[in-house]
Design a protein around this nucleic acid. Structure first.
Lengths: 342, 342
DNA sequence: CGCTGCTGTGTTACCGGTAACATCGCGACC
DNA sequence: GGTCGCGATGTTACCGGTAACACAGCAGCG
C-alpha cells in the first residue's frame, strides 16, 4: 500500500485485477452495477497498489474541475482572512476544493483572475471591499459563476455579478445607537478609508444614525484600518471635543486608546469607544473593547451556497439569509453611561 | 477577446490560424522555432478567441502540475497564517501555484494529505508545530517532496522529511536575557502547550537560560496560546512571586496584562513582561509590548526554496540560512529595569 | 547536381481519467 | 426452445494539452 515514485494509474489497477479500466472507474465512482466478486478484486488491487484517482485527469475528462477559486485581498486583515477560511471550509464541505490566491494590488488581482481562468475553476469568489482593487475587474472577463464577497451592491451591479456581505450599516447602527443610548451626544467617527465598501458604509450609517437622532455628524477622522492610524488620530479626537468615538475597526480602536492614554485620557472615563470586528484579542484590551461582532464563518457558508447553488450552478435568485449575516454588539468595558455630573 | 461560455481550446486556435495545434503549442510556450509570420497569425487568433491554456491539461500531459500543496494547521493563529502567506507568495514567485488546505484536527490533516496526493502536487508543505497533528502523518505515504514547516527536527527525522523553522530557542534566549539584563532574578514562564514544537522550545530555552545564569527555573504556567489562558494565569503568576514573566506569545501576554490589571497590578510597574510574535497590534497594547519578532515572510521564502530546490527538486543538502531565520527582540514598554529600591 | 543538414511545420501517440455505446451471458416468458 | 431484456463488462473515442518523430523545403557543400 505504500508506494514511492510514480503513482499507479487506473489501467494498472485494471490489469492487476484482470478487468477493464472502465470497470475500475465504476468501482471508484460507485453507483454503477458491478458484481460483488469483481468489486472485491478491484478493491484489493486498489489497496495493493495504493491507487489514488488523479483529480486533474478527472477534471479534464468531465469538464468540471470541482474546484473554486478564491481571490482574497489584504489578507493581513482579520475580516478577509476569516471570510476566506469560512469559505474554504464551506467549499470543502460541499465537495469543492478551493484554490486561494491572495493579492495586494489591483494588478495582482487581475493576474489572479487570469490564473483562475487557466485553472478552469468552476466558480470564483473575490473577497475584497476595496473599490480600487475591484476596478481592476472592470475590463476582465470574469467567469460566469463569480461572486463578490464583501464588495457591496454597487460594485456588484457594475460587474454584473452577485455579491454578498455582512450588513455593515446594521452593525454601525447598533454601535452608534448604543452610544446614544448611554447618553452621548457628541460622537465622532474614526473611519476606514472611504474607498472601501465597509469603511464607506459604516461611516454613512454613523452619520445617518446621528442625524436621525438630531445630533451633529461632522466629526470624522479617516484612518487606514491599521493601529498606527488610530494612534495618530488621538489628537484630532481630543480636538473634536467629543465624549465618544465609533471606530471603524478594533485595530484602530486599540491604537486610539493607546494614543489617548499618552494624552492622559482614559477610556471609558474620559471617552467612550466602540470598535468593529471583535478580534480574538479585543476582549482583553485595556479596557476590554465594546465592539461589533461579525460572523465570518456564516458569511463563507452563505457565499459557497450562493456560488454553487443547491444544484451546483450559480443561482442568482437565491436571497441571502439576511438575519444570519447581521452583526451584533458585544458590550464590554470601553463605554460608559454619561451621568448628570458629566 | 471577451468570451462567454466554453473556453476555446488549442485546436480551435490552430484551425483559426490555419496551422497545426502543435504550432500553437510552440507559440504559447515560446522558445521553439516559429517563423515571424506564423507567430503573428497565431497570436492574433489567440487574442481574437481569448484563448487561455488549460493548466489542468498541461499538468496532465507533462506530468508535473506546477503546483505545491500547503497544509496549514490552526489557521486562527498569527504564526501559521503569516507563514502560509509568505509561502504562498514565494511559491507563486517561483512559478508554482499553491493549493492550501487548512486543518484543525489530525484527521483533517490526513484527509488533506490524501487530497493533495489526488491533486498530484509537485511538492507539499505542512505547516504546523503541533505534535498531535504531526502524529497523523506517521502512517501516511507522504510525497517524496514534503517539507515540514515549523515542526522541529524531531518530527522531521521521524517522518524522514526535512524541516525548516525559525530559531525558537534563539528567540527565547534573547527574551530571557533581556529580562536578566534588566536585573530580574525571579522570572516565570507562561508557556505554550508542551506538545507544540515552539511551545516546547521556548520553554526549554527559558529554563536553560535561567539555569545558565544561576537562576531558578521552576515557575512555569502552561497556557493554550489564547488570550483567555493568559488572563486566567494572572493569579498563578502573582502566587509565583516573580518580578518578570516571559510569555510564549503575544496573545497570552495581552490576557495576562489584563488579568494582572484586575488584580491591581501594573505592567511594567509591578511586573515586567516579554511576549513572542510581535503581532501588528502589539505596539499599541497598554503598555506597548516588548516582544520577539519573527520574520515569517523570510521563512516562507526559504521554505519554497528548500522545497523546490534551485533546480526544481527537493534538495536535502541545502542548508537553511540560519542568520535570516533568527528572530529578534523588539523593545517597547512592558519591561523595566529593577532598581535598588525594588 | 545530388547529398547533407537545418528550419519550420505537421502527425501521431500519450497523459489518466470519463462517456457512450457494444457485447456477452443468462434467466424469463410465450 | 427461441427471443427478449437486463445486468455485467469491454471497447472506443474524447477531454486539452505535450512529446517524439516525420517530413518538406531550402541553403551549403563537394
Amino acid at each position: 500500500m505504500v508506494t514511492r515514485g510514480e503513482a499507479p494509474s487506473l489501467r494498472e489497477v485494471a490489469t492487476r485485477a484482470g478487468v477493464s479500466h472502465q470497470t475500475v472507474s465504476r468501482v471508484i465512482n460507485g453507483g454503477a452495477k458491478v458484481s460483488e466478486a469483481t468489486l472485491r478484486r478491484v478493491r484489493a488491487a486498489i489497496d495493493e497498489l495504493g491507487y489514488r484517482p488523479n483529480s486533474l485527469a478527472r477534471a479534464l475528462a468531465h469538464g468540471r474541475s470541482q474546484r473554486i477559486g478564491v481571490l482574497v485581498g489584504n489578507s493581513d486583515q482579520h475580516g478577509p482572512v476569516s471570510t476566506m477560511q469560512g469559505l474554504e471550509r464551506a467549499a470543502r464541505h460541499h465537495g469543492y476544493a478551493p484554490t486561494t490566491y491572495s493579492f495586494r494590488t489591483p494588478d495582482e488581482l487581475s493576474a489572479g483572475v487570469d490564473f483562475m481562468l487557466g485553472q478552469r475553476v468552476d466558480g470564483l469568489a473575490v473577497i475584497t471591499p476595496h473599490d480600487a482593487a475591484l476596478a481592476a475587474l472592470d475590463g476582465a472577463d470574469l467567469p460566469e459563476a463569480t461572486l463578490l464577497v464583501g464588495a457591496g451592491p454597487r460594485a456588484a451591479s457594475r460587474l454584473h455579478r452577485p455579491s454578498i456581505q455582512i450588513d455593515q450599516s446594521g452593525g454601525a447602527r447598533v454601535a452608534v445607537e448604543h452610544l446614544i443610548g448611554l447618553g452621548h451626544r457628541r460622537i465622532a467617527h474614526l473611519a476606514g478609508p472611504e474607498d472601501w465598501y465597509d469603511g464607506h458604509e459604516r461611516r454613512r450609517q454613523w452619520a445617518q444614525t446621528l442625524t436621525a437622532a438630531g445630533l451633529d455628524a461632522t466629526a470624522v477622522i479617516e484612518g487606514d484600518w491599521r493601529p498606527d492610524s488610530g494612534h495618530a488620530a488621538a489628537g484630532k479626537v481630543l480636538d473634536a471635543g467629543v465624549s465618544a468615538v465609533f471606530v471603524a475597526n478594533d485595530q484602530m480602536a486599540l491604537g486610539l486608546v493607546h494614543g489617548l492614554a499618552e494624552h492622559g485620557r482614559s477610556v471609558p472615563g474620559d471617552i467612550s469607544i466602540v470598535g468593529f470586528d471583535d478580534l480574538p484579542e479585543s476582549a482583553h484590551f485595556l479596557p476590554p473593547l465594546t465592539t461589533v461582532h461579525q460572523d465570518f464563518a456564516a458569511l463563507g457558508e452563505d457565499a459557497v451556497r450562493l456560488l454553487l447553488g443547491e444544484d451546483g450552478g450559480l443561482d442568482e435568485g437565491a436571497p441571502t439569509d439576511a438575519e444570519r449575516l447581521r452583526p451584533w454588539l458585544v458590550e464590554r468595558e470601553s463605554t460608559r453611561r454619561l451621568t448628570a455630573a458629566d
